[in-house]
Write a protein that binds this DNA or RNA. Structure first.
Lengths: 225, 225
DNA sequence: GGTCACCGAGTGGAATTCAATCATCCTGGT
DNA sequence: ACCAGGATGATTGAATTCCACTCGGTGACC
């Protein structure tokens, strides 16, 4: 869910994130200022205790300004989530290009590293755990996670010759779900992140995927076919 | 978090779940009636869309009655969560005694089976995923999960001779976190539960714990010491 | 002068309180 | 045994408070 959506472009029907596209430059600053304020508030009170008034005050704006840009309270959270996802994507790219990758494992490791890094440095990053259990488009979350799994699958297929297919996507989806849970646990209390859970997350990722995609497993697949 | 707390007695400082302990028998019925109503509403609108008025109306009571028993809205959710956990514990016990257990794996499997069964039959069981990101007692959730891991560890140590210790408890905590995430995913959309995720959950549990507690791994441990 | 931004009192709905009322239990007198 | 009637438990719903969200009015930019 939270790791879900990573690497993905907006899902086709971007649900009108902002009401008004900023025309003047000052409003662009307002917009990011609002998100910065929201991020700070998220760190202080958590994202379900957040109120529009808090965000406005923290941003040095008035309630009306918040509503000028966002249709409602959750839209702010969605936007913050979106920004966090974008920054995460960027971080993953940075991490990948800064590392020498010798196997798919290194790529997966980079993803974990990026996620952990942002948890530590990006204000309000816990927003990635925000899941709108709304009535309307529940499928969005699933589609989101699925989309990320697909993108990651593409990378692993193209760069490391993993066998493409629905199985790979499904397993990456499972891996995302598990990593998400373990890292959320690692940072649930500890703002630095409990190293034990982080390390165990890396280990689980590797073991789980190794079952199917270790060199040995791949050899077996190759000889069997 | 959600599987967390299973098998555990209430954490020492039970945070005043109900305002008034029921004295007369009719109020006991009221209390469970309120929870039944809350469970139904949870299934209909989800546990963040729930309103006290909905619960009251569904239970055939008035708003005031809800507040007689619960200090606020989230207290109702906490109570429902608590009841779900209790029923889960019972189900695990039933499941364990109804099965012939030949190894620790069977016990773990029973836990998964019990969880899945309740997801399918217990109204509002998704409340187990309710995690109050409140300011106050964040430690409760952690302590909760830890407590469950301890209890499960006790069972596995006593019944199947797994090596006791903090490592076992930690790993069970990790397993709980992962199972929780995968089963929540399985039931996120599908009310019957996506079998693929359920099966993968069982597989992951076994593989992960096998790494440390398979007969082979235990033999290595024994010979090494 | 005409948009673009912004403001903040006002509106409405949901959460929560509380004083009044009803139901049940208890006790002592017959 | 029975019952009156006070004490305490239980219920009610109108009133209050809090918060998301609207909108007509005021300046800022171009």
């Amino acid at each position: 869910m939270s790791l879900g959506g990573l690497l993905g472009e907006e899902t086709g029907a971007a649900p009108q994130q902002v009401r008004t596209e900023p025309i003047q430059q000052r409003s662009a600053a307002r917009l990011s200022g609002l998100l910065d304020a929201a991020a700070a508030v998220v760190d202080e009170v958590g994202f379900d205790r957040i109120t529009t008034a808090m965000v406005a005050e923290r941003a040095g704006a008035s309630i009306g300004t918040v509503y000028r840009y966002y249709p409602d309270r959750v839209a702010v959270l969605h936007a913050l989530h979106e920004r966090a996802v974008v920054r995460f994507r960027q971080r993953v790219v940075d991490e990948l290009s800064a590392s020498t990758l010798t196997s798919w494992w290194d790529a997966v490791d980079c993803v974990v590293t990026a996620f952990v890094g942002l948890y530590r440095t990006e204000p309000g990053f816990r927003i990635v755990n925000f899941d709108d259990r709304d009535g309307a488009p529940v499928a969005d979350v699933v589609a989101d996670a699925d989309f990320f799994a697909r993108r990651l699958a593409d990378v692993l297929v193209n760069e490391f010759d993993l066998p493409a297919g629905d199985d790979l996507i499904f397993r990456l989806g499972v891996a995302v779900e598990m990593a998400d849970a373990l890292l959320a646990r690692a940072f649930h209390t500890d703002p630095i992140g409990d190293e034990r859970f982080i390390a165990e997350c890396r280990l689980v990722m590797r073991d789980y995927l190794d079952r199917f995609y270790s060199p040995q497993a791949l050899n077996l697949l190759a000889t069997a076919s």
